[in-house]
Design a protein around this nucleic acid. Structure first.
Lengths: 195, 195
DNA sequence: CGTCTATTTGAATGTACTCAAAAGCGGTGG
DNA sequence: CCACCGCTTTTGAGTACATTCAAATAGACG
């Protein structure tokens, strides 16, 4: 547990400075949750009343469309924050599933508890505000990339962002994320390998 | 001016309820700005210290990539809020240009003044928070659509979202928005017309 | 070991791209 | 007001990239 706490503390201290006692106050609200491979952290239809910080493992966020096809929206590994922001903020049911692609451990904090943290340590407001902005900007960048980049661009971009993700998730999920079929990704990989 | 004010009031009152005096307090901070066709509301490199509400006209948000190519991120017409949220919140230089595709009028409110509004009428915090969330969710939806939808899907989706946009913007911009070449869009339109 | 799923490979098809050229349209200056 | 210029849109031809459908192979898991 100690190494998990130092991981999350280091993550937070990239943006705000914390005293030991402030961090203790915060960390008392954290709950450890294990998600075995192929199990869900969040299911579509549930309300996401918590935010999570991944201390180990890998999660994918995906939706299922009207034809039953999965669309992977995001990959997240250790040192990432995870959840459905919209559901979290509005209290509405989530449209997303968040599922482990390998055994994963997450530190979660419930919405009520986060409110208490805000009251006790206002600079956490700043931390989470910046977190939200960053996800917004990340989305904007992704839209720009998706607009004109080739499948190869998107694949290389993903590998660069999350090193080793090819080994931690299935090809099917990665193909879905970059918006091509698994067959095309298979061919793309062969092409890259032959260079 | 009166019709502009009733437009913005109606827009705000979709989310929060305002008394006349509250609305007056708010509206005193609004500044009217005219943007002639092809002129910019915001240029890349500037800090976006204001948020705007379009009362008439049409604006596009776009970036210019390292090869000099334009990428249209968003269309906005009357009754839309516009700006670069990231630049607005962080005070950093914007990466985006926002330009009028026809003569446009915008009511803007400066960041400082918005802070004053928050102090005087706290429920405006709620209004702008929801606005931000909605743009976030809109982006997520667009990513999902872009992932697997064909160019035709994306085109029809845009037309449905902003009726008549084909007549108010160039084909080049629309093609850029949906991520295809102007030539391809020309062919797509012919195909749709022949049905 | 057997079953189920993921991945690879092939062949034919489709969609969008590039490059090139013609036609259309809008704004400017004479 | 018209002629011209520049930019947008259309159209054509050939090409590249990704898709679909089908089948074979490889891997994971009980």
């Amino acid at each position: 547990m100690n190494s998990r706490l130092s991981l999350i503390r280091a993550n937070i201290e990239k943006l705000i400075v914390l005293s030991d006692s402030e961090f203790d106050t915060f960390s008392k609200y954290l709950v450890l949750r294990n998600i075995p491979k192929k199990h869900k952290f969040l299911s579509a239809g549930e309300v996401c009343n918590y935010t999570g910080f991944i201390t180990s493992g890998c999660l994918i966020t995906y939706t299922i469309d009207e034809n039953g096809a999965e669309h992977v929206i995001q990959f997240a590994v250790e040192d990432y924050w995870i959840g459905d922001l919209y559901s979290f903020i509005t209290g509405s049911e989530s449209a997303y599933n968040i599922e482990a692609t390998e055994d994963t451990t997450v530190l979660i904090i419930h919405k009520n508890d986060l409110e208490k943290v805000y009251e006790q340590i206002p600079k956490f407001e700043r931390f989470f505000r910046i977190l939200v902005q960053r996800s917004y900007v990340a989305l904007q960048h992704r839209i720009t990339l998706n607009q004109r980049g080739t499948a190869q661009d998107k694949y290389e971009n993903l590998l660069q962002k999350i090193k080793g993700i090819e080994l931690r998730s299935t090809q099917k999920h990665i193909a879905s994320y970059i918006g091509i079929t698994p067959e095309s990704l298979s061919r793309l990989k062969r092409k890259l390998h032959n260079k």
